[in-house]
């Protein structure tokens, strides 16, 4: 079955490609990885869509407003609203075509979009977050918003990463040869100094995200987090998921799953790493799809 080009959203301005399937039960929504257009990093989303279609699972890759092929949104909605509002609109469009349930999948900011959209819509049965960086970014937490929360969850993760780098000769070599993001390093260290060398309280943004995650799990939404070995998201997700580690009570039956892929970077640039990622994603989506038909 061939792919179809669609113009989606409230204004019909969001450009997308639907890889349809005969079964209209489930559709996987592939969300923009940062500013990369809907084909995904090195065409990852296209490859995934085609493999899923061969397995009888539909998917839709599309561009948020002002990204890729989609023009800017006419109502100029702020970005933190757009990345939730537009996936909801696209789900409405696809529901009108008969798709009942959705899996939201995104890399980096796409993971953020997937997570926050799932909080608003009961049609979402699973969320797949790949290398999420700060899921509390821009949210109202303890009366603080935006920049103030930005330097919390992600900075904690960077501190954890830098600590481990202290023992890696290659990391020191990178530092001396300019292969390091000095701005990020400086910002993180400054944030840590400002907060005090000794950790005194748990990060409120981490707790906030854990609470929201629990809401999803209570709704029986299946959560998968894939992290790359060379990405700071490992530490961030470990901090987030620590709450569910070693929990065996029945109330913790639906736990979020973290998978670490070795020898991979933030955008899965290596072909071999991308193949392993595709295998993990297809397996997860097929399992969820099968559980729907049971």
């Amino acid at each position: 079955m061939k792919e179809q080009v669609l113009q989606l959203g409230q204004y019909g301005t969001l450009v997308g490609v639907l890889a349809p399937s005969d079964s209209k039960c489930l559709c996987v929504l592939l969300l923009n990885a940062g500013l990369l257009h809907h084909v995904g990093p090195a065409g990852l989303y296209v490859q995934l869509a085609r493999v899923l279609q061969q397995q009888g699972i539909a998917s839709c890759r599309w561009d948020l407003s002002a990204i890729g092929d989609s023009p800017a949104r006419p109502d100029h909605l702020p970005i933190f609203q757009t990345i939730v509002q537009e996936p909801l609109e696209v789900m409405n469009n696809l529901s009108a075509k008969g798709y009942e349930k959705f899996i939201l999948l995104g890399i980096c900011s796409g993971a953020y979009s997937a997570f926050h959209t799932a909080l608003w819509d009961a049609r979402v049965m699973s969320v797949v977050m790949i290398n999420p960086e700060d899921l509390a970014l821009g949210q109202q937490i303890d009366g603080a918003r935006g920049r103030q929360t930005e330097a919390t969850g992600a900075s904690e993760a960077w501190i954890a990463r830098y600590k481990r780098s202290l023992l890696r000769p290659q990391a020191w070599l990178n530092l001396l040869t300019g292969n390091v993001d000095y701005d990020l390093l400086w910002d993180t260290l400054r944030w840590r100094l400002k907060r005090g060398i000794k950790k005194t309280r748990r990060d409120s943004s981490i707790i906030w995200v854990q609470q929201r995650l629990q809401e999803l799990l209570d709704r029986q939404v299946q959560v998968l987090c894939v992290t790359s070995q060379a990405d700071v998201a490992i530490y961030y997700v470990q901090m987030l998921f620590a709450k569910w580690q070693n929990k065996t009570d029945p109330e913790y039956q639906n736990k979020p799953v973290q998978l670490l892929l070795n020898n991979t970077d933030h955008l899965f640039t290596y072909i071999e790493g991308r193949r392993r990622l595709l295998a993990v994603l297809v397996k997860w989506i097929k399992e969820k799809s099968a559980s729907m038909s049971d």
Partner: peptide, 25 residues
């Protein structure tokens, strides 16, 4: 340049051995 900061062993020592570039085979 992409591989260096990741600390990986260079996958291609020369252009002749280059099998992928920035994710493209």
């Amino acid at each position: 340049d992409f591989e260096k900061p990741l600390g990986y062993v260079l996958s291609a020592a020369s252009v002749a051995a280059l099998q992928e570039v920035m994710g493209y085979e």
